[in-house]
Amino acid sequence: MKDKLFLLFYAAAVIVVTSYHNIMFLAGFLVVMFVLSGAQFLLLFRKAFFAVVFFNSIISVSYLTVSLIQGHPWAQYIVLINLRVFLLTFMGFFIINRVNLFKALSFSSTMTFILVLAGSQILTFKKIYDDFAFALKSRVIKRAQTKDLHNYISSMICFFLNKSVNNSREVTQAMRSRGFFGD
């Protein structure tokens, strides 16, 4: 129940933060999040900062430039958007660390199931993906040509595609064997 409430709170907070445009309110909200994050403050702050810095810098700098040329006020918008984006990102990281997503989504067995199956395969695939990259590095003596890279990417994608299709068959059979489908 705790996880469901947390996720619900997160969804509501996202809607509020994107609907209410008062800078003082957003700043206050951010301070509350900072306090709640406690010992994790620095870690979350760094993570959120690096997650948004690229996109936000581009938008802020171009908005500033355009406004200066056209003589519009700019401070209000730049403060508002950066504050809100940072708040949402920080809050996202804060909540995700605390919610057991599988518990939060347990009202839908389909959703939980897809997430468990996909999540575990993603972790396996990521490991194999790293090995593919290592194996290429290990085998390339001079420099791989574009043709080799195309072959490499194709065979890697085929491997994963084949593996996915086989896994989906095997998982189905395992589920049947465990009496999942009631036949």
Partner: peptide, 21 residues
């Protein structure tokens, strides 16, 4: 070049090493 020729590695899953037609 010398190192990659002299020290070779057989990965646990041969699939990860194979990519030629």
């Amino acid at each position: 070049k010398i190192f990659r020729k002299e020290v070779v590695f057989l990965f646990q899953h041969p699939d990860t090493m194979i990519f030629n037609p």
